[in-house]
Design a protein around this nucleic acid. Structure first.
Lengths: 225, 225
DNA sequence: CTACTATTCAAACGTTCGTTTGAGTCGATC
DNA sequence: GATCGACTCAAACGAACGTTTGAATAGTAG
């Protein structure tokens, strides 16, 4: 894998990966056939098995290609924040922004490609307990642990279990927002041109999430409905 | 369809629907074969096509069976609130609770069945643009419109587009939370016994969501990053 | 030019898919 | 007890699936 990854031209490989991102996003893993995929990518049917070994291995390669840099940039942003803060606890909103920016950037910049992946990623969180989920969890684990520690330091008064749930909520909001931007029409009334404006979306998300994250604890609100 | 629905015993039908909820949740629509489904339900392979017509029609029936009562109870809860309020604007948190309670109840009470559906539902929001999505959107539309109107009245100072986005965020948090309760381990540290405690979850969600919903507008926070 | 590796290609592999068919079973109706 | 409708069943249908194969085709080094 690493040997071949160093080679000069991966034209076929990358073309397969790019098309796979789009088709998996549109039709799911099981709903996308190798025949459709390879014909859209203008490569031979056998190319996927030759270059990746199997369909499942293609899926894994697809996630690694995007997730590794994305998590790296998340960690980098957090470490930059901590270096700047010089020992002081961070503002929760700053941590949130550091976390959501890489995803938003991927959604915005890549001419389709990044956006496809981001939406595919959101879909996959809620998918079967298949090995894919395990892979994603494993790729995410170090990043999540670092952000959890940072938030614990930023919100020392919050019980850890409450914090974990709120991180879960945040993660849900983010992944759903990125995955189901079409579904805004469920509610209707959203300007389509704002849909992929990453900066505007970051402002909206940061406001919503930091308010939710720093809300008074559930226990102190009331006991019964 | 309606004629047959009135008949006394739907044993085969309901057994198919129950098993379908579980298997679709576990393996997705395309990942679940009719052969596995019918053998798990202890019915003949042809039973699905006999009783529902096709696999797609089974999926549609499955969603209608749960979604219609769920939306009805959401509307009912909102109308009860408005009747009690007697013209006064409602508290945003009360509206939120009215919206999330039916889902949480379904998650809690049914011995597996409701929970399977709730998780399946969360998965489906982020799934292909297939006709299923259109069906769900259509089943949800009236409920969403009513809740949107109620929230507009409860938060008159908020721009409509901001409100729409925040409803989108809320919807995402809820569906992700219900769909991917396993994924809490992404963050880790959550007590497993709390995972399906509907009351506790309602408190956590209500606190998080109502804080997010009523947060200061993104525009007023700052202009540039 | 030759030998070698990497890649592409058309064709076929066996399996599984959703659906259809036609005979068979059962209970209620006349 | 014959008739009819609802339902179940085993078997088969053609189509589509992921994967494999072995020959053809570059591109490179000796």
């Amino acid at each position: 894998m690493s040997l071949r990854a160093v080679k000069p031209q991966h034209e076929t490989r990358t073309r397969i990966l790019d098309v796979a991102e789009e088709l998996f996003m549109l039709h799911g893993f099981e709903g996308t056939s190798m025949r459709l995929l390879t014909s859209r990518a203008s490569v031979n049917l056998a190319a996927v098995n030759y270059h990746f070994g199997s369909k499942d291995a293609l899926i894994e390669a697809l996630f690694r290609r995007r997730l590794d840099p994305m998590n790296a940039s998340r960690l980098e942003a957090l470490e930059r924040l901590e270096a700047e803060a010089d020992g002081q606890p961070l503002a929760p909103e700053a941590i949130i922004r550091a976390f959501i920016q890489p995803g938003l950037k991927l959604m915005e910049d890549a001419r389709g490609g990044g956006r496809n992946f981001i939406r595919l990623l959101g879909r996959t969180y809620t998918e079967p307990a298949k090995p894919i989920r395990a892979l994603i969890g494993q790729l995410y684990a170090p990043t999540m642990a670092r952000y959890k520690a940072a938030l614990e330091r930023a919100l020392p008064q919050m019980p850890v279990e409450e914090l974990v749930w709120r991180m879960h909520f945040m993660f849900g909001t983010l992944s759903y927002t990125l995955a189901a931007t079409d579904a805004v029409q469920l509610i209707a009334g959203c300007k389509p041109e704002d849909r992929y404006d990453a900066r505007l979306l970051e402002e909206r998300l940061a406001a919503f999430l930091s308010a939710g994250l720093t809300a008074p604890h559930a226990h102190t609100v009331r006991k019964a409905a």
